[in-house]
Amino acid sequence: MSLIDSISLPRNIRLPRVDGLVPWIVPLAIIAIWQIACVTGFVPTRVLPAPSDVALAGWKLLLSGELVRNIWVSFWRASIGFLIGGSIGFAFGLANGLSQLSAKLTDTTLQMVRNVPHLALIPLVILWFGIDESAKLFLVALGVFFPIYLNTLHGIRTVDPQLIEMGRIYGMTDGELFRRVIFPGALPSIFVGIRFALGIMWLTLIVAETIAASSGLGYMAMQAREFMLIDVVVLSILIYALLGKLADSASRVLERLTLSWHPAFQKR
């Protein structure tokens, strides 16, 4: 017994560290190759600045406070838009999943609206809201709404009917049935919706900020283009990538916490 313990202990400690690094090998390798290509002159810096130049530009913007302010503005818009659109989508998903009447009343309309690309509304939104905050929030909320609505609805409709029958036999009230059976059963599907929505959230925000804004990451990139600051443009793009990854990781952590019962999330 003690022999097995002493053998397995160091492995247990080492494995997670290696596992944590593996996903970063490819991005780091790409940056390394990119740096070499720029330094050797294989890629002209007017086309693509070296990663070191991008880092330098980032450092300067960080010192001036411009970078933090723009990231914060974008982050705030993304979160508020996500909260608004996500809550409405979740509410409609619940209502239409639980009530036939509600589904009959609203589902067809929502399916029609869903098939309009929400970014096509940008000209209209600018006419309505100008380039105010509400324009961006509206677009993000609209983009986030549908994946969350569809997946919440799907999750609730596909809860095992045998479990629902079991809950009723054991005298669960409607509230209890929802809390103990229907909602936990729909949760894996709701998380799929959240992760889709996070992707759409960044996409929408960036497009909106690029077209009509006076602050934020998208605005920063557009300003940089005006002044031919290609390193700042590349920097903005890299920050988008990092923020997207951050949002995805956050939803994964949440998934792991709430779905620990699920065989797919159990530690081997």
């Binding site: 045998q162 079991m166 103990r180 936990p184 019962w261 699920h262």
Partner: peptide, 13 residues
């Protein structure tokens, strides 16, 4: 009380 062919346990409990 009824017991079914399937256990019908709540997987999340």
């Amino acid at each position: 009380r009824v017991m079914f062919q399937e256990p019908r346990l709540l997987p999340w409990a």
